[in-house]
């Protein structure tokens, strides 16, 4: 796994772990988590190349783009 693939994996893994929440809340939870725990370069990398993200993780990354 290279770093980009690992970030996609991590975002999807967060999404899987909050999947019992209704989708809108799950999206916020994933976005908040990334915002709180990822360093700026990691955030920039996932924003630049969100390919491979599951729908909730993808929406979370999009949310991150708009709230940043």
């Amino acid at each position: 796994m290279n770093s980009q693939e690992r970030l996609v994996y991590m975002a999807n893994q967060i999404a899987r772990n909050v999947a019992t929440q209704p989708e809108p809340q799950a999206i916020v939870a994933v976005a908040d988590h990334i915002k709180a725990f990822w360093d700026p370069r990691m955030k920039a990398m996932i924003l630049a190349a969100p390919e491979g993200l599951t729908p909730v993780a993808r929406a979370a990354v999009e949310r991150l783009r708009t709230v940043q």
Binding site: F37, W38, D39, R41, M42
Partner: peptide, 18 residues
Amino acid sequence: PEPGLRIPNMLDAAVDGA
């Protein structure tokens, strides 16, 4: 104000040259 790198993230970033 931005969080920094955790140990595994540091190692990934190192392999990337950053």
